[in-house]
Design a protein around this nucleic acid. Sequence first.
DNA 1: TCAATGGCTATCATTTATGATAGCGGTGTT
DNA 2: AACACCGCTATCATAAATGATAGCCATTGA
Lengths: 72, 72
Amino acid sequence: MEKNEVLVKIGIKIRELREARNLSLQDLSDKCDFEKPNLIRIEKGRTNLTIGTLLKIALVLNVRLAELVDVE
Amino acid sequence: MEKNEVLVKIGIKIRELREARNLSLQDLSDKCDFEKPNLIRIEKGRTNLTIGTLLKIALVLNVRLAELVDVE
DNA sequence: TCAATGGCTATCATTTATGATAGCGGTGTT
DNA sequence: AACACCGCTATCATAAATGATAGCCATTGA
């Protein structure tokens, strides 16, 4: 699978987990300690995010890092 | 787990997979299309690597992305 | 002895992720 | 009508990842 496709799918997975927890973009970005537009960028797969950023999100969503990138 | 710890563990996992395939740093970095010192940086956990970089490595090592970050 | 290989460091320029701000359209509520 | 919330875009400055180069030390083999 190609990079952009992977990023989009990771974004979709994050969004699904967020919605499953009834969190708004504002809610989740607040808990992750960054701004809403940055989270949107991630969920849309428009940024080649780092492990550090992914880890913040995984901690708040209470999932393993591996689960977030398990998209192949 | 904390970010730097995760990065170090991911680095160790990459190194283990590389050595299991009898590849030198030069070999793997060549196949990934970047230079040896950059791979060392990654294996040592000194860089907060992106999904894109991790994906390159996963493809060459023939493992899933999730396997590389499964360190918790 | 000398060259080649492997692991490593330090350092540089360029690209880009991150963090933040302002603003828009839509929906729902008072 | 006015306000608040939601998802979203565009854009900016700053920090940092990436990609690359030069060089060090140790080991091995010609």
